[in-house]
Write a protein that binds this DNA or RNA. Structure first.
Length: 585
RNA sequence: GGGCGAGUAGCUCAGUGGAUUAGAGCAUUUGGCUACGAACCAAAAGGUCAGGGGUUCAAAUCCCUUCUCGCUCACCA
């Protein structure tokens, strides 16, 4: 189905050519939804922008466009307003026809891209031997949502978990374990993740305080990167234990990821450095092998290097990211690579991308995008730190969300004197709790800092997941009460939309395609949240004003279809955010 | 000091260059259930869109500048 916006654009473009000649064939018709319903549904601002080049009065231009427009089956006759806006109001029977078109379609009329392209989404990426904390929540949830949206649009998406399973922290950990718990280096599951985390902290303290230990730790990294047998064995044990723990969280959140950690690229690191050398990009500075960047300076105004090999001979994350980039371009054949990490890494990625382009690793045809997100702040507005101080563990956070949702539900059941099984209560609590956490994060513009607040996150009122879930449950209630199978509704007779609330709702349902396409390019999932919230509001308003089951035909069937399409749109939209719906709650 | 980002209602945040009233939600005040489940709806109140310039027919939005606050600036990732 061609979206309303595209149809209008085409029509106005044709009218422009008809009225003013083919030189305007490429002029953007500047169609946008109106921001006030009293001006109709869509407006074109093109007449104003053409006033100067055409040296004509914008209202006269608008009139010429209208005279050449052919939109009879779509809109009432367009009107000129103010200095020269053209306003379009969609006909209700046209809207009814569009609803009919999407009604039998599982995808609700949203097309898939042709041909498909390979897209890599790199997200989550926790560090081995550390617990997943609230900071990983954003990357995991946002990355998953982006992957789902692109998958739905038909892209061949590879979801990569670039796990921090390599690097200095392992030198530190192994060196410390050798010192303190040698048995843990040889026996599986001698330590649980909780121990690992406290070990990490102790090792970090030793690392920071003891220069000799620091040297030993650095040597361990080099040994590991060189493939020393006993170091590798210890490393594998550490990774396995962490992996099990991560999986618990991924299962709970229903996140699917392919693990390809930093260690995967280890065999390619030396080649990357020599490749840079061959291209004449490499310089030695203070003992380290660097590529100096354009447009980046340090405190003293000197050019900033991207270090690809450290003084001790070890490689670092810049080297790994270059190797990963090359692999993803050459072996995976990615056309678009999306990195979902916090905005603090913006400089790093800008540097890596610049060097990769210079070195010919990254061709023009491949789009790389850093999708940054803001910090996780405490309720006090200060940063929640990862290494010092107490951080909120992700698992604990999710459990508490579910627990709170359960308490809330039980209170409600008591008030309403409803009886439900424990299975029902647990299931609803789990869906509501997890949805609330995901939605609270996704509904904000990801680029702003995220103020982490249990009470707000778990509030069941307002622009929250429970509000949307409830809007989904209401049509299901109608279906049960009226003994109606939505999938068996009449698909032939005309849909009639008489009440204002019905029209408003119907038009909103038809906006889904535009919203999804927008998110596909901006990678801002909060647009979908806003859309679904507004949809839910509009449905609730219609529900309040229009009787459905008791209405006479043809209103009754039309309204049932509206209710069904609302529910299916919410279900689809939420599924793109990784959120499940409930039939009852 | 450089780079990047942010400053919109008491609070949390949307906001796609347009039309005498800049939008939500929360909180506050006030109405609406013998029910298609009120986890809802309706109404009120709340703003010199940080300040100052500029471009434009039109600026919260683009440009410049000042102030404030974050993040970041070589061997952690």
């Amino acid at each position: 189905m061609t979206s309303i916006l595209e149809q209008l654009k085409d029509s106005v473009s044709q009218a422009l050519v008809a009225a003013f000649g083919t030189e305007l064939a490429d002029t953007d018709p500047l169609i946008a939804p109106t921001n006030n319903p009293k001006f109709g549904d869509y407006q074109s601002n093109v007449a104003l922008s053409l006033a100067k080049p055409l040296k004509q009065n914008p209202r006269a231009i608008a009139q010429s466009i209208i005279d050449n427009l052919q939109l009879e089956d779509m809109c009432d006759s367009p009107t000129i307003a103010g200095p020269g806006f053209i306003n379009f109001t969609l006909k209700s029977n046209y809207i009814g026809r569009l609803l009919r078109e999407i009604q039998p379609d599982e995808r609700l009329g949203i097309p898939q891209v042709q041909p498909t392209e390979k897209v890599i989404v790199d997200f989550s990426s926790p560090n081995i031997a550390k617990e997943m904390h609230v900071g990983h929540l954003r990357s995991t949830i946002i990355g998953d949502a982006i992957a789902r949206i692109l998958e739905f649009r038909g892209y061949d998406v590879l979801r990569l978990n670039h796990v921090g399973d390599w690097g200095t922290q392992f030198g530190m950990l192994i060196a410390y374990l050798r010192e303190a718990y040698p048995e843990a280096l040889t026996t599986a599951n001698a330590l649980d993740i909780g121990d690992l985390v406290s070990l990490y902290k102790k090792a970090k303290v030793r690392f920071d305080e003891d220069e000799k230990f620091k040297q030993t730790a650095r040597q361990e990294v080099v040994n590991l990167q060189a493939g020393a047998e006993d170091s590798l064995h210890a490393w594998k044990l550490l990774c396995d234990q962490s992996r099990q723990e991560f999986q618990v969280v991924y299962d709970l959140l229903n996140i699917k990821l392919e693990e390809r950690g930093e260690s995967f690229y280890n065999p390619f690191l030396a080649d990357i450095v020599s490749e840079l050398e061959q291209k004449g990009l490499l310089e030695e500075s203070e003992g380290a092998q660097c590529v100096f960047l354009e447009g980046f300076t340090n405190k003293d105004g000197d050019p900033l290097p991207l270090i690809v090999q450290k003084t001790d001979g070890g490689f670092n994350y810049a080297t790994t990211d270059l190797a990963a980039l090359k692999y993803r371009v050459k072996e995976d054949g990615a056309a678009r690579i999306i990195y979902v990490t916090d905005s603090g890494q913006a400089n790093h990625f800008a540097g890596v991308f610049q060097v990769a382009k210079k070195a010919g690793i990254l061709p023009e045809s491949v789009e790389v995008v850093h999708v940054p997100f803001g910090l996780v702040l405490g309720k006090d507005g200060k940063r929640i730190k990862t290494r010092s101080g107490e951080t909120v563990k992700l698992k604990d956070l999710l459990d508490e969300a579910i627990e709170r949702a359960k308490n809330d539900l039980e209170t409600r059941l008591k008030e309403e004197e409803r009886q439900e099984t424990p299975e029902f209560i647990n299931h609803v609590a789990q869906v509501v709790g997890l949805s609330a956490v995901k939605y609270a994060d996704l509904s904000q513009n990801r680029t702003s800092d995220y103020k982490f607040d249990f009470d707000k996150m778990l509030d069941l009122k307002g622009n929250t997941a429970p509000y949307l879930l409830y809007a989904y449950v209401r049509p299901q209630g109608i279906s049960r009460k009226g003994n109606i199978d939505f999938s068996q509704l009449d698909t032939d007779t005309q849909i009639v939309l008489t009440e204002e609330a019905e029209l408003v709702l119907a038009k909103h349902i038809l906006q889904l395609e535009e919203v999804i396409k927008e998110v596909e390019s901006t990678l801002l999932p909060n647009r979908i949240c806003l859309y679904l919230f507004e949809l839910s509001q509009k449905f609730n308003q219609m529900y309040e004003q229009c009787e459905i089951l008791k209405a006479d035909e043809p209103q009754r069937t039309s309204r049932l279809i509206l209710a069904d399409l609302t529910a299916r749109t919410i279900k689809l939209g939420l599924s793109l955010l990784g959120i499940n719906v409930l039939e009852r709650m």
